[in-house]
Amino acid sequence: MGTLALLGFGPGGWGAALLGAAATTLLLALAGFALGLVLGGLAAAGRIAGPAPLRLLATGYTTLLRGVPDLLVIYLLYFGGSAALGGIAGWFGHAGYVGVPPFWVGAVALGLISGAYQAEVFRGAYAAVDRGQIEAARAVGMHRGLILRRVTVPLVARTALPGLGNVWQILLKDSALVSVTGLVELLRQAQVGAGSTRQPFPFYLTAGALYLAITTVSNLAFARAEARARRGLP
C-alpha cells in the first residue's frame, strides 16, 4: 500500500482515525485549559489577596508544578491518581473503582500543569492594572464586588490574553505527553498506526503536521481576540 493510501480515508487508510484522534487532542487541551483557568485564577487570587497559609499554598503549587517535568506529573496521576481516588472513595464506603476515564486523568493532569502557568499570567496581569482606574472606581462610589467585576477582572483579562495564548500553545503540545497513559489522542493514534504498519515515519510526520495546523489556527484565533480586546486602545 502506498503511503498516501495508508494515510487516506479509503479502506485500510488511517486518515479518519488520525483526524478523530486530533479532535480528542483538541478536546483534551480545551478541558485542561478550562480546569487550569479555574485553578490558575484561584491560585493567583490566593497569592494576591489570600491569608498567609493560602498564599504559601498557592506559591508552593505554582513553584512545584513549574519546576518538575510535565511528564512526571502525568505519570504520577496515571500510576497513583486513581489509587488515591479509590482510597478516598473507600472511606465513603464505595468499594468499587471510582470511574475516572483516562480522558479525565489526562485533562486533570493538564489542568494542574496549565493552572500553575495561568496563575503566573494572572498575577502579572493584575500587577499591571493601573491603580488609578481602581481609585477612580472607588471615587464614583463602587463597592468592592462591583469594582472587581466591572474594573479589575476586565482589565486583567485583557492584559492576560497574550500570556494565556502562550499557555494554550504549551498545553496543546503537552497534551501529546498524555499518550503515555494509553489514551488514544493524536500521538497515540500515530503510534498505533506506526506499530501495526511498521511505517513510523509517515505516521509521525502526519501527526506533526496536524499539531502544526492546530497550533497555527489557534494562534490566529488568539491574535484576533487580542486585537478585539484592545479596541480603542492606542
Partner: peptide, 21 residues
C-alpha cells in the same frame, strides 16, 4: 515555526522511530 508548533515528543519519535525506518 515547525519546531515551536509541534510537540517535542512527536519530534523525538520522528527522529528515533521514524528515521529508524
Amino acid at each position: 515555526f515547525v519546531f515551536r508548533g509541534t510537540p517535542l515528543l512527536v519530534q523525538l519519535f520522528l527522529i528515533y522511530y521514524g528515521l529508524g525506518q
